[in-house]
Design a protein around this nucleic acid. Structure first.
Length: 275
DNA sequence: ATCCTGCACA
DNA sequence: TGTGCCGGAT
């Protein structure tokens, strides 16, 4: 039973998020890419700044990769910036792809982002834009489990959409349920509009025991070194390997012989460094 | 220590 | 199906 979802969303949804106030596909794409593994609060100031600088795919494509990477600094996963820049060039050259398969051919655009663009920017939802939040809410509320195959989750999301809610509002409302109420390790069922028909309500009342998400420690990792090497190269693109090694000497992984050269090679392979 | 509107590899 | 990618915040 999702009769209360629309009312809850109207009153308690995050309507102030600026990327929800536009349907310009470029602005939406920038927001979706930034939000891939970066929290909303950290994206907020950076999204506005990015679009002020490059309001269109054409303007972004005209910039250099270095400029885009420098603008991205601090957001993490700079490969997303490189992919966005390449997508901008493709869009500037050939226009926007018309369907889900075409959108997924844009670098950095996977199943989720393609569907999000169709739903949030193009008003042509093809299938649920199922990120981890929608997946979790659907699994718990509609299926009564913690996880389920993607196809089942998509089917459940489609089946439970209130007829009165457009796909865009339904999707955004479930984003907010997942982000504000039905968190991975805690569920605020008392305030949840889906609670009356939730298949996991009784189980969630006992407390949520979420298995810890396996994630390699960042300090000492190659990722940390890559980040340091990229920052140093953006600051001074023409420096030698020896100078570079000195610049990143404080990073733990840089102590291993050959690690800096390895990081450089990786950055080049991933298209983050030209030379 | 764990999280965060994923994507692209193996 | 699993794994690496980044970094700031809680």
């Amino acid at each position: 039973m999702t009769a209360g979802l629309a009312a809850w969303y109207a009153a308690g949804g995050r309507h102030d998020l600026p990327w929800r106030r536009t349907r310009d596909p470029w602005a939406v794409l920038v927001s979706e890419v930034m939000l891939q593994q970066t929290p909303v609060a950290r994206v907020l100031p950076r999204w506005s700044r990015f679009l002020l600088r490059w309001p269109t795919p054409e303007s972004c494509a005209a910039a250099s990769l270095d400029e885009v990477l420098r603008e991205w600094e601090g957001l993490g996963y700079p490969r997303r910036a490189a992919a966005l820049w390449r997508s901008a060039a493709m869009i500037a050259a050939s226009g926007w792809p018309a369907d889900e398969a075409g959108l997924q051919r844009l670098p950095g655009v996977g199943p989720y982002t393609a569907r999000a663009l169709l739903c949030l920017a193009f008003h042509r939802p093809s299938a649920p834009a199922r990120d981890v939040n929608l997946g979790r809410v659907a699994a718990r509320c509609y299926l009564g489990v913690e996880t389920a195959p993607g196809a089942r989750l998509d089917a459940a999301l489609e089946a439970h959409r209130p007829a009165a809610m457009a796909w865009r509002d339904y999707t955004l409302a479930l984003f907010d349920v997942g982000a504000l109420l039905c968190r991975r390790r805690s569920a605020a069922c008392q305030r949840c509009p889906l609670a009356p028909g939730c298949a996991s309500r009784a189980r969630l009342a006992e407390g949520v025991e979420a298995p810890p998400r396996k994630q390699a420690p960042y300090p000492g990792s190659m990722r940390q070194l890559r980040g340091a090497v990229l920052r140093a190269m953006l600051a001074r693109p023409d420096q030698s390997v020896a100078e570079l090694e000195a610049a990143v000497a404080g990073v733990p992984a840089a102590a291993r012989p050959g690690a800096v050269v390895e990081a450089l090679a990786g950055l080049r392979r991933d298209g983050l460094l030209a030379t």
